[in-house]
């Protein structure tokens, strides 16, 4: 039981870290450009497909990983320059609708190119084994590697935002776009870079998650909605909020699915305990979100309006 618990904790951490890669881009784009981007899940899908295709073609997972970053960043930059740029001054309704249209285009385009059957990514050889967790159960090394990689990328992002010139510009852009444009920063280029950066992070998450699940059209949508829950909980625009929210959602979701059926089994018969427990577990993060919003309508780290 203990080792199973530990395993679930690690799964929760993994899902939280992957969610952060998604949510950070989403929250940056909203914070800097004021844009709500539903197509962020499509960029995640683009990353996963690019990784799967290139890995199958070259036989190298690492080249696939590079491809996922490149493809998602390029797709993001192109979409920003062609379409998203026209939406910054529009209201949220137009943004929702235009990015919903982008999802249709991306999903159907991917289905057209790759077909409806899921692709599978195989893990590089030296990461295929398992490790023994304290308590005796086995845990795939690759999942641990994803957690470490995700944490490293998250740390890198915090350094980028906190310590570099680009990070200063991004934060300045969040605070006052008019002012930094007046100070001579090329605001159009900054926006394209921020969007491409968020897209690359999403693409990377897609490639990572694609190795543990299948790569298929529509894979980005459940993650996108979880990422929305994350940034709503954390406060829209806040990277720190995205980190806290991601971990909260990752752990709540994983542990709820694991523990709730057990908890109900203590006073109900097994089949209805499983039914009620899993139904409640699937709603748990939304209940947490409702609670957070009830107490703090603009999220944990959001600017109070």
């Amino acid at each position: 039981m203990f080792s199973l618990f530990l395993e679930q904790l690690l799964n929760g951490l993994q899902s939280g870290v992957m969610l952060f890669l998604m949510a950070s881009g989403l929250t940056l784009v909203f914070g800097v450009m004021g844009l709500i981007n539903l197509a962020h899940g499509s960029l995640y899908m683009v990353g996963a497909f690019a990784c799967a295709a290139v890995a199958a073609w070259t036989g190298s997972f690492w080249l696939g990983l590079v491809a996922s970053l490149m493809a998602a960043a390029i797709a993001g930059a192109l979409v920003e320059m062609l379409i998203i740029r026209r939406l910054y001054n529009r209201d949220h309704l137009d943004q929702v609708l235009a990015t919903f249209a982008l999802i249709l285009i991306f999903s159907e385009g991917t289905r057209w190119i790759f077909g409806s059957f899921p692709l599978f990514l195989s893990v590089p050889d030296f990461l295929t084994g398992t490790v023994i967790l304290p308590g005796g159960s086995q845990y795939p090394i690759f999942r641990l590697a994803i957690i470490v990689a995700g944490l490293l990328v998250a740390a890198g992002l915090f350094l980028l935002i906190g310590k570099t010139r680009l990070g200063i510009r991004i934060r300045a852009g969040e605070a006052d776009r008019g002012m930094i444009a007046a100070l001579g920063v090329d605001i159009d280029r900054l926006y394209t870079i921020v969007f491409a950066l968020g897209a690359a992070l999403a693409g990377l998450a897609g490639a990572f998650v694609g190795t543990t699940q299948s790569v298929q059209v529509g894979m980005g949508e459940p993650v996108l909605i979880l990422a929305f829950v994350v940034i709503v909980i954390g406060g829209i625009g806040s990277i720190k909020g995205a980190l806290v929210g991601s971990l909260l959602v990752g752990f709540t979701d994983t542990m709820g699915r694991f523990l709730l059926p057990h908890a109900f089994a203590t006073f109900l018969d097994p089949s209805s305990a499983t039914a009620i427990g899993s139904a409640l577990a699937s709603m748990l993060i939304y209940i947490v979100m409702a609670l957070v919003l009830f107490l703090r309508p603009s999220g944990l780290f959001g600017a109070t309006s």
Binding site: I36, F228, V232, Y286, I287, M289, G299
Partner: peptide, 18 residues
């Protein structure tokens, strides 16, 4: 309805997903 703007969009979405 305690929230507004983009929060409202995402939260109505989240409740429907629930």
């Amino acid at each position: 309805l305690r929230t507004s703007g983009v929060y409202f969009i995402m939260i109505t979405l989240a409740f429907a997903q629930m």
